[in-house]
Computed example of a mutant assay.
Amino acid sequence: MEDEKLIFDHTCHVLYSKACKEQIQDKIALHYPAEQWEAIWTQVQKQYVDFLKDWRTDLGGKKNFHNGTGGTYDCIALMAYYVICKSVTNLDEIEEMEGNLFLPAFRKLKFVNVNKLFFKRLLHFSFATAGKKCLKWNDYKMNVAAYQKGKPIYYEFTECPVAEFAKQFDLLEVMPALCNPDYTAMELLHAKLVRITTCSNGSKCDYMICGDEDEYCRQHPEYKDVQGYRRNK
């Protein structure tokens, strides 16, 4: 089905990104015979639209930077794919797809090294700026701690629309695949993420970020829990 034929409220919702569409169609082609590709893709599209019918309408549409590639609506599209293609997909594949959407922006920042004070302060500034944008859209509740020299950067989300969506539609099992790429994103900046909980398996999503040479990250080794979340002790 052509994207233009999908019926949903464009004043408050956005279509999945072109990159997300390509990711899903590539996986459909991997798992199904060619004669089924269009039918399966149409089912995913219809599931996406069905999700939006019962989803909140206050996330800012195209104006909200969280709704771009790899963001809130792409996560909804990946969950639509998961629902329709659950018999052939798995969480490792969903995590790969989200990483392919979310991580290219970080790969462009390969010159960044958070072990260096300049880049660490710059990273904190970017988080503080994002926090102000979250206040504007009232979507992700983001609290950013003041910068402290010699200590890790800290911020937290106490509300996350993607986690809310997963709870509403009984898809919490997918959340590890959507949360874990945060770790890889920081590794691309020569940084380490130390996280205990997320909004989907706790009351907040906590981000403690330091350089990958910092002793702090060695004091909090990473592990993967039974649900598939990357976490720290």
Rank of each mutant, 00 (worst) to 15 (best):
E2F: 13
M186S: 11
R218E: 10
V83A: 10
D206V: 04
K233Y: 15
R230H: 11
R56M: 00
E96P: 06
P104C: 10
P221S: 04
E2K: 12
F165V: 00
E164Q: 14
P161I: 06
P221A: 14
N232C: 02
I84A: 05
C179H: 04
I40D: 07
A166I: 01
E35L: 08
P152R: 07
R231F: 02
V194Y: 08
H190Q: 15
Q45C: 11
R230C: 11
R231A: 06
D139W: 03
L193D: 08
L188R: 04
D50E: 06
Y229R: 03
E93D: 04
E95L: 05
N138H: 02
E4W: 14
H190R: 14
D225V: 00
E22I: 06
Y82R: 09
L101V: 01
V194A: 07
L117F: 03
I153H: 09
V83N: 02
P181H: 03
K62H: 12
C20L: 08
K21Q: 12
K110A: 05
Q43D: 13
V83W: 04
T158R: 14
Y207R: 08
Y155Q: 03
F127C: 11
D225M: 01
F169S: 01
K133E: 12
L123R: 15
R56N: 00
R107N: 11
A130Q: 15
P181R: 04
L103S: 03
R121T: 03
P104E: 07
D9M: 03
G99A: 03
L6H: 05
V226L: 07
I94R: 02
E222A: 11
C210E: 03
Y32C: 09
V144T: 08
T57S: 14
E215N: 06
D54T: 11
E164C: 09
D214Y: 12
W137H: 08
G60Q: 03
S200Q: 02
P33K: 12
I196E: 11
K132P: 00
C12S: 12
I209H: 11
G70W: 04
F157P: 07
N180T: 13
P152T: 12
Y147A: 08
H66Q: 13
E159D: 15
T72I: 06
D58E: 15
M1N: 09
G71R: 09
C20V: 02
S87E: 12
E156I: 03
A146R: 13
E164M: 07
N201T: 01
L101P: 05
E4I: 11
Y183S: 09
Y140C: 12
I196F: 13
T129R: 14
L109Y: 05
F125G: 07
P161Y: 04
V144Q: 10
R107W: 02
Y140S: 05
L52H: 01
L172I: 00
Y183H: 15
N115A: 09
Q43C: 10
A80M: 02
W41V: 02
R230Q: 13
N67L: 02
H31T: 01
V14C: 00
Y48R: 07
Y82T: 12
H190N: 15
I24S: 11
K63N: 10
R56V: 01
T69P: 12
K116N: 08
C217A: 08
D214G: 09
Q148E: 15
Q227I: 01
V162H: 05
